[in-house]
Design a protein around this nucleic acid. Structure first.
Lengths: 200, 200
DNA sequence: CAAACTACTACACACTCGTGTAGTCAAGTC
DNA sequence: GACTTGACTACACGAGTGTGTAGTAGTTTG
């Protein structure tokens, strides 16, 4: 897993650079020339290997999805974290996760499909754990969105904490904070009923 | 509050169009010419009123922040929703919230400052409600991020639900689902201790 | 009435973008 | 040794970008 950068083929370096820059700056924000420079190749080579920017993006989508599934499979064999997605705060998956969320927000179908699969998984997990919300699908969608929230807002959360949450110490801290959110009930069922009446 | 579009000054139309397009497509994705066309004016007028794209963005930041605070003040006088930010799912605040999150992700200091203020508010609220997490700051940051997550991923959540969450019916549904997340404990304190040992 | 100011448009400028084309170079293949 | 193939670079093109400049029409000000 610790592949030296120089050992990667140019094609792989381009793909990795694209995932990094697309994730950091968004699809529009990262130009082919930027990516080529980051990978240490000419911009023409990007086109040679991937054909177009859109095709490069799709290749990144596919690779990121496959790698995430692969890493997820490796992790689930070491114990279930009971609902808190182990991928969520896994350092190797960081750039991939960042890229996927960006791609999702920029309208990628592959990335969105990955989210929908996540919702399915959460819904199945909740059901098997005996959790019975009034709206299981809505509950699962909310939970799936929540799992990504600290990632999407990692810069802001890091600033609020005065600590980079992409470091081991940082993501341990925010991970435990997330677990507390899932543990401490904020509202009683009576309060919810009251709000429900207010809204409609 | 229901100002007809035609009655707005050109400057206000430009600002509203910018907030809408910046929010939908990102700062880079919305050109000055796009914004001018959306507002029904020439691109030169955008420059005349705001000076530069960056200045336009800052003006949008300030306006969005002020309006959000204003709307929030109007809402808090009608009962406290006990932690679930009423702004979160308020239809009038939708375009503003969408813009602010986008601006935040594209590195706006004003938008990030608004997030940090939100964390402060959540922390103070939790404390006053007798909620005592082990890491109050981390807890508040996680909760603040969660409050924005369904907004950021509104397209994906809508797809998962088969229902547009920017409609009244939709945001009621996801709002109630969020409340259930805050109500049903997913983890027991014992499970958390177990995970904590695993991680370190 | 003249000057000044404001809202507004038209147009051109340099730059960057994604893309297209032509060509080099090395490693096989016959 | 001629030929092909694939990795790779250099360069040019048209479109779109933010920005700059010049100018017009209408109102305000002296």
């Amino acid at each position: 897993m610790d592949r030296a950068v120089e050992d990667l083929t140019a094609r792989a370096r381009i793909r990795d650079a694209a995932i990094r820059l697309f994730g950091e700056r968004g699809i529009e924000g990262a130009s082919i020339r930027d990516i080529a420079a980051e990978a240490g190749v000419s911009s023409g080579l990007v086109r040679h290997h991937f054909g177009s920017k859109e095709a490069l993006r799709e290749a990144c989508d596919r690779y990121a999805k496959d790698r995430m599934i692969q890493i997820g499979a490796e992790l689930t064999q070491d114990g279930d974290l009971t609902g808190l997605d182990p991928l969520l705060l896994h350092p190797i998956a960081f750039p991939l996760q960042i890229y996927i969320v960006r791609s999702m927000m920029d309208g990628s179908e592959t990335a969105t499909a990955l989210f929908l699969e996540g919702v399915d998984a959460v819904e199945a997990w909740a059901s098997s754990y005996g959790i019975t919300p009034k709206d299981p699908r809505g509950y699962a969608a909310a939970l799936a969105a929540i799992k990504l929230s600290v990632f999407i807002l990692r810069d802001q959360v890091s600033k609020a904490l005065g600590e980079d949450i992409t470091t081991p110490a940082g993501y341990n801290r925010i991970g435990q904070a997330l677990m507390e959110v899932f543990t401490i009930p904020l509202l009683t069922p009576e309060q919810i009923d009251k709000i429900r009446k207010q809204e409609k």
